[in-house]
């Protein structure tokens, strides 16, 4: 733990991390069945970083991601996202926080009764101030950026897997969130579309200066990361930081 902390120190001393976990523990179930899923997690992630988290199945990656995204309440330890402490945060505060985070799931989870453009719009409509801007134009521009200009008015369920995932990326990034959390976004895609999807994410994130935390088993995409963290049995591994030379 101290090791992680210290190595983070070297990263940036002035800027505050956008994600900061301290002695974070998490448990599932209660009583006899209570089982600890996360042990003593310490992690700092800074603005603009692309972090890939890997590790064996069941090691707790998704659990950590849902905690950071405010989708679960933090139980023990401290977890600060965008300067806000999530331990003891109210349901309302969590909902509020979620507006500022983009999510990309393994299953694309698009609204099937909406078109690609409308799906992207839904993300913008969360922000009242967006209504003074050209929401449709922004949505279409974002779909252009992910290479879907031909599919703007297609219903989500008439798109291919790779196209859906690109709509999901557009939806996550269109409102320029500070943080994007992605859980195995390429798992349901073939090699080529998977690679395309993460490259789009990388490019857009670098343009917008947003932070990406990406969970994956896919070794072929590790090279897009600024930093790789490794999770095993609910702990971040002792020597988690393997900086990939860019």
């Amino acid at each position: 733990m101290i090791q992680t902390w210290q190595s983070d120190q070297s990263h940036s001393t002035a800027a505050e991390p956008v994600i900061s976990a301290r002695q974070l523990n998490h448990y599932f179930g209660s009583g006899e069945l209570r089982k600890q899923a996360l042990f003593d997690i310490n992690l700092d992630i800074y603005a603009g970083e692309i972090i890939i988290m890997t590790g064996p199945s069941g090691s707790g990656k998704t659990t950590l991601l849902t905690l950071m995204g405010g989708l679960r309440s933090a139980q023990e330890g401290s977890l600060k996202i965008l300067g806000q402490e999530l331990h003891d945060a109210s349901k309302q505060q969590l909902t509020q926080l979620r507006c500022n985070i983009g999510y990309i799931f393994q299953a694309h989870n698009l609204l099937t009764f909406l078109t690609a453009k409308q799906n992207v719009r839904m993300s913008l409509e969360l922000h009242e101030e967006m209504f003074d801007r050209d929401i449709d134009g922004m949505s279409v521009a974002m779909l252009n950026a992910v290479g879907l200009q031909q599919r703007v008015d297609y219903y989500a369920d008439s798109l291919s897997g790779g196209q859906k995932q690109r709509v999901a990326i557009a939806r996550a990034l269109v409102s320029q969130p500070k943080i994007v959390l992605a859980d195995e976004p390429t798992a349901a895609l073939d090699k080529k579309s998977g690679r395309d999807a993460v490259e789009i994410m990388q490019k857009l994130a670098k343009e917008q200066g947003c932070t990406i935390l990406l969970v994956t088993h896919d070794n072929r995409i590790l090279d897009i990361a600024d930093r790789i963290v490794y999770m095993e049995d609910g702990r971040l591994a002792d020597n988690p930081e393997t900086t990939i030379a860019d």
């Binding site: 995204g69 909902t95 926080l97 979620r98 500022n100 985070i101 989870n109 698009l110 969360l126």
Partner: peptide, 15 residues
Amino acid sequence: DHLPEYATLKAMGYS
């Protein structure tokens, strides 16, 4: 039928 989609909306920040 749309439960995962509703859950997604919640995840995105819809109340």
